[in-house]
Simulated assay, not measured.
Amino acid sequence: MVRSTPPIDTPINMPINTPTYLRLRDQIRTDIEDGCWRLGQHLTLHELSVHYSVSNVPVREALLQLQGDGMVDMRMNKGAVVRAVDARFIDEYFDVREALQSMLLSRACRAAWASSAQTLASVTALLRPLEEATRFGRVRELLAADEALQAHLGYLGGNDQALRMQASRGRLLEAFRRARVALWAPELEILVVQGEAMLQALRHADPVIAGEAVRRHVAASRAYMTRLLKVPETRAPK
């Protein structure tokens, strides 16, 4: 039976009795991604308390959670700084992403249901919007479709801890990307090609094909994000 992809750590999925600091953690994380708080920005406890209409206590706890996720760096008695994305961050992130994605897709290929009609249909359905966005050069749609496809492929690997490790840092990279213009680049055309290769890897239950497809996909994504380092930040991150 194919696994369906659930959202990870989103407020809508939280039980009604979830502690305030956890709800606040997710809200701040979403606001960083949406550009409300910029990468590299210093956030004080007072500023966040006023903005979210809560006391300093849940704010501090939320920031400690986000520090554990790698999204902020705490400052002694001074709040926190949202982590910036630079060339080193991009290189380290994609080194880890390649290792995790290769492992997850290889696990999916070895699963008994990897080449089932239901599994292949679920992946094919996610490939279609990626193909369409590539055909018409719609950058933001392309990247969103690719992320949805990769999230689903990763979930098929059946290792939720690996997905969570990748997701938290990925939110910072998403904030970085959204804060810049939707730049078209040749690397983007490779994403759909390697997505189709990943589908073939599942169809043939072949971890070798899977590993090579992941390697090429990650190389293209890394090149694109590195290219964006030279693009000025806008004030319309969405």
Rank of each mutant, 00 (worst) to 15 (best):
A197I: 00
L63S: 03
D146I: 00
A205N: 01
V192H: 07
S55M: 01
M165F: 06
L183E: 07
Y21M: 02
R138D: 02
A205C: 09
A112R: 10
M74G: 07
R203D: 00
L191W: 13
D69I: 01
L126H: 09
R23T: 15
Q67M: 00
P237T: 14
N56G: 00
N77V: 00
Q67F: 01
L191M: 15
L126V: 05
V2H: 10
V82N: 06
L143S: 00
R88Y: 13
R216S: 14
V85P: 07
D34Y: 09
E98K: 02
V2W: 10
L173A: 02
T5M: 13
D86F: 09
A84D: 15
D146V: 04
T226I: 10
N159M: 09
L22F: 03
Q200I: 10
E98G: 04
V82F: 05
S4Q: 12
A133L: 06
E189T: 15
D206A: 08
A182M: 06
K230I: 11
R169H: 14
D91H: 04
A219E: 15
Q161L: 14
K238F: 10
R227F: 05
T30A: 02
A205V: 00
A220T: 13
D95A: 04
N13D: 15
L143D: 05
L45W: 03
L173I: 02
T44D: 07
L143Y: 03
G79D: 06
V123P: 10
L104I: 01
V85G: 04
H152I: 01
M76Q: 12
Q166P: 01
A219H: 14
Q161F: 14
A185L: 15
V192Q: 09
P129L: 02
D9G: 11
C36G: 09
S102C: 01
L172G: 03
N159S: 07
P15R: 14
L183Y: 08
P232Y: 13
A201M: 12
A219C: 11
S49Q: 01
L24W: 00
E47V: 00
R235W: 14
P237M: 08
T5V: 03
Y52R: 05
L105W: 04
P15V: 04
G40A: 15
V2K: 10
G157F: 07
R128S: 13
A112W: 03
S55F: 01
V96D: 10
Q65W: 00
E187T: 08
L127H: 11
Q27W: 04
A220C: 15
A125V: 05
A205I: 00
A111K: 07
R180K: 13
L228Y: 13
A201Y: 11
V2Y: 09
A236S: 12
E233F: 15
Y21H: 12
A148E: 05
G70N: 06
N159R: 15
G170L: 06
Y93H: 10
L228C: 14
L173P: 10
A114Q: 07
R128K: 12
V85N: 03
V81L: 06
P7R: 13
G195M: 07
V50C: 08
A201F: 11
I8E: 10
S106L: 01
D206R: 09
A182G: 11
R60K: 02
V96N: 07
Q67S: 03
L183P: 06
V96C: 03
V231P: 10
G70P: 07
E174C: 05
L64C: 00
V59L: 02
E141Q: 15
R215T: 08
L100M: 03
R29M: 05
P232R: 11
P58I: 05
H51G: 08
G40P: 14
